[in-house]
Amino acid sequence: MVLVYIDQADQQIKKASLEALSYGAAIAKQLGCATEALIAGTVKENLAELGNYGAQKVHQLKNEALNSLDVKAHSTIIAAAAKSLNATVVVFAHNINGKAIAPAVAVRLGAGIVTGACSLPNTQNGFEVTKTVFSGKAFATIKIETPIKVIAINQNSFGIQNHNQAASVEEINIPIPAASIKITKVEKIEGEIPLTEANLVVSGGRGLKGPENWGILLDLAKALGAATACSRPVSDSDWRPHHEHVGQTGIQIAPNLYIAIGISGAIQHLAGVNRSKTIVVINKDPEAPFFKAADYGVVGDAFEIVPKLTAAILKMKSTA
């Protein structure tokens, strides 16, 4: 059986988990076995709807103490659940929570793990999974040598697939270990689309010359419904908050569309965005290295081009 861990934040199921569930269901189909989901804590959604993403059964560890991440507690109960349910493959989203929990679960199950997976397993010769390595600059195909396998799937690499079915929901009883950490304060970034979950991202670099010029970028992001990001020099200069920094040492993203404005495209920046499906580069320097990694390029002054692009998008949306 393939068991997919359904992750939540603020009692809402993360989009990345629905993708992990779709991915787990595809593995189950390949192996000819069932797909089941495991969720810890209490969420607002109707869990039967997880059937739409491929789950036949949903196991819920209904306990409010599990609503925030405690790796020791979560990994202990997920491993115990996987054992008692006889899971042979355990799937996580490779997001903040999945990255923290999945390797500990693998150890507790004596299982081999591949994190950052970007393909379905090849089961012709054992069990091989391809993952991104060298910050997205290459792929490695890894053979998992253990009877139980743990996989954490890269966000936005498999997609969400619809299955027209309802899942049965059952409560599962597993003793919950004492909390190993105490949360004392939560600061939420309100109203913004989390970068790692955004389908569309508009990003700015030093070419915008200063934080006072970000208005044109924010207008474009608003017209598109996109999240905003920036390059390292921009966050280092405090023009934009650190959590917007994408790149090798910032966060790595893989949106459907990445629009880079006034970013030259240093190799470290590309490492954070090269898994984007489509890249648009706007830069006045035709020699900017980013154009080599781009699908569409516009050479010229961002201060003229970006407002025109925003207007064109609003026009398209009003006629659509």
Binding site: A106, G110, A111, G112, I113, V114, E128, T130, V133, G136, K137, A138, F139, A140, T141, I142, K143, I144, E145, T146, N274
Partner: peptide, 10 residues
Amino acid sequence: TTSIQIFDLP
């Protein structure tokens, strides 16, 4: 528990 089989470039 795992072994690298092969690398690929995008």
